[in-house]
Nucleic acid binder design. Structure first.
Lengths: 324, 324
DNA sequence: CACCCGTTCGACCACGTTGTCGCCCCCTCC
DNA sequence: GGAGGGGGCGACAACGTGGTCGAACGGGTG
């Protein structure tokens, strides 16, 4: 900028005014400055601007894994809203590790991002307190913050969705419905278990529940155990998209009635089509980002908790006749 | 930092030394400074650090769409390498629009990122020249830069992969093989067309080629046209993952021999399993990021062009008996 | 002619950090 | 005891912006 100023024969501040479109510059002078800018290929140093103004025009996003289609969809929606507001997005994957989540959030804060959207991996977020007091806007997505932290949160109706899936299977005559899901330490898994249990009522049997991270071998073992029971399940409810796919792979060939939580690409092309309780990751990302910018505008009072609906999509796998 | 200094009763510079782990500070003093840091919840302002040092420890990534599994995988791999080097990742989706690509790159440059990885949407990258001269490291991934720009590039063997797919189908007796692919304005699409054509030799028939963006309706129309020919194709080669899925959907039910470019989740669970020429997006991301950091360390001479191999995965769809 | 007002522009400082340089003190060695 | 050296620390400048304030100038008004 200094070079531009001397090239145009004006003061530093005048260049600054032209660059920022501030009034009070003679059109002719402004033109000369713009010519110098083009000539020198000058582009404003945003770091200095940030240092001076305090606003970074940057949003941080912490998710579990960009490579997971669910988070990729969420990510894209967040990105669109962020760009629309003239900001950029710093993103990082926690890999479901609380330590990594915290490191990412703290690194983002050190860079003075204006706001952060977090899909939390851990359940202790007291480390955020200082940042919140410092004025950083924070929105939690997919899972709520741990105790003692009160910020805007966007989740889906996990329990309701699971209950919907179970009711659908019950309506098709099933009374023995197994649940294969993630570790209940994860909020969404626990909520889905709750919905499953409530919808089953007196039919609930802990022997039909299997919760752990979805490794192919683990799921295979679980299915073997379930089908070896004296009173085996006649239908399966899988707790998330990854679980559904792993289960389908482990079932290879066997046509077992199944409803999955989360929609996924090609669910319609499977044979039979996979009936799912779908959530909309893009919608979640959009809502979370908009909530964040709402806060950044300084609007709104107490922390909001938005619960998005889920949607049962019937495709065939949940309506198969009971085996045997 | 000023507050920390006065709280600890030392000079600003001493705090800076402690924060950066520089030598020449008495352990006792350092301890007092660390105590003050904890007490005040101080965290270094990275913007000021950047302004002073010039290094942002930030890498920019421009892809086509994070929500596309291919780019999501690439993204994650880039992210891992970037974090490993103590940097953060700014990412943006171009949506296959050259203007957007350029805007993103220029915004990244204004923020003085240390390096950029670009999956280009356009074919004119002369706008990069100034940045390259200014010392910003740039690596192109998936597609090479346009004329006149010479930077490190990571691509896959598109033509070879397409040829491999065609040869596989020819080995199964096909002589009429249709190609459904993206607009040949896209480098990868053009290369795959080239490989397809070369592997077909005298069997090549332009009537069997259909290239445009993969809308469900468009693909359906194309298939109708192809199968209505006097001498219709007996097998299909689809030019990318999205195209393969759209085609499978349009074919619903019909068992047509098919090989697709790009692997995708659940390809193995389709009926029949989908034979594909697979590339490894994570590998591409990793290689591109490592190439970038290699440059940032100031190593290496002329621009490198890395071509990654592809891999035929036989699953059944490419080996179906010829219809009729 | 004196005065005022608005437009246009520049000098200067602050933002929070790091690099440079120099000071002070203590220890060692002759 | 004085010289020399090194460890520990601080003062100051500088990075590239944006905000504040005031100067210079031209033109209109009483």
């Amino acid at each position: 900028m200094k070079d531009v100023a001397s090239a145009a024969g004006v003061a530093l501040k005048t260049v600054s005014r032209v660059v920022n479109g501030e009034p009070g510059v003679h059109p002719e002078t402004a033109e000369r400055v713009r010519a110098a800018i083009d000539l020198l290929g000058y582009s404003r140093n945003e770091s200095a601007r940030v240092l001076r103004s305090g606003r970074t025009a940057t949003i941080g996003l912490v998710i579990e894994d960009v490579a997971d289609p669910f988070y990729a969809g969420l990510s894209r929606a967040v990105e669109d809203v962020v760009i629309e507001h003239g900001c950029l997005l710093l993103s990082g994957s926690s890999g479901e590790e609380p330590t990594r989540e915290r490191e990412l959030v703290e690194t983002f804060c050190a860079r003075r991002v204006d706001g952060i959207i977090v899909v939390p991996a851990g359940d202790d977020h007291t480390y955020l307190r200082a940042e919140l007091e410092a004025g950083t806007a924070v929105v939690f997505a997919d899972r709520p913050p741990g105790a003692g932290i009160d910020v805007d949160t966007v989740i889906v109706d996990n329990a309701g969705g699971a209950a919907r899936a179970v009711r659908h299977l019950r309506e098709h005559g099933h009374r023995r419905i197994a649940f294969l899901g993630d570790d209940p330490a994860i909020f969404t898994a626990a909520e889905r278990l709750r919905g499953y249990r409530e919808a089953l009522g007196e039919l609930y049997d802990p022997a039909l529940v299997s919760m752990r991270s979805p490794s192919p071998a683990g799921v295979r073992d679980d299915l073997d155990r379930l089908f070896a029971l004296d009173d085996p399940p006649t239908a399966l409810f899988t707790g998330n998209g990854r679980y559904t796919m792993t289960t389908l792979r482990a079932l290879r060939g066997r046509r077992v009635p199944l409803v999955g939580f989360d929609d996924f690409e090609l669910a319609d092309l499977m044979e039979p089509g996979v009936t799912v309780v779908a959530q909309d990751p893009a919608r979640m990302g959009k809502v979370a980002a908009e909530l964040l910018f709402h806060r950044l505008r300084g609007e709104g009072g107490p922390a909001e908790r938005v619960e998005l609906p889920v949607n049962l999509i019937v495709r065939g796998s949940g309506e198969l006749p009971t085996p045997r």
